[in-house]
């Protein structure tokens, strides 16, 4: 069930508290303290959304909450900034929807 991209997380992982979130309907392992952006990157997901006008892929850019590029849907709420939103156990993350889809 878990992706093979965990090597993007910098070891050691031993001291981290694992939790499970859902990404586009699939269960994905995350760790407490991570942001939504980190979880997506860690499973090799670079594209967080597609733009409305040109359907161009977008992902994390500024990493500090000012550029509004890394928008995803979190627990049904559209256009949430992945880079500044901490994950929580059971969180439902969607990269397919939102107002820009």
């Amino acid at each position: 069930m878990f992706s093979s991209h965990e090597s993007l997380r910098i070891p050691p992982l031993t001291s981290r508290l694992p939790l499970t979130v859902q990404v586009d309907g699939e269960p994905v392992q995350a760790f407490a303290g991570e942001t939504v952006a980190t979880v997506l990157l860690a499973i090799g997901r670079r594209t967080f959304r597609h733009t409305e006008n040109t359907h161009a892929p977008r992902g994390i850019f500024c990493g500090m909450g000012v550029c509004f590029d890394c928008l995803v849907t979190v627990d049904g709420l559209p256009d949430v900034r992945a880079c500044v939103t901490p994950v929580q156990a059971g969180m439902v993350i969607d990269t397919r929807g939102g107002s820009d889809a």
């Binding site: 952006a37 860690a42 670079r46 967080f48 977008r58 994390i60 850019f61 500090m64 590029d69």
Partner: peptide, 25 residues
């Protein structure tokens, strides 16, 4: 520069230092 994977140095530094994840290989 809008392609996913292109990001600011500040974003990459925050990912590596404080999220312990690599922006890429």
């Amino acid at each position: 520069w809008t392609l996913p994977g292109v990001m600011t140095a500040g974003a990459a530094l925050a990912l590596v230092k404080h999220q312990r994840v690599l922006p890429g290989r």
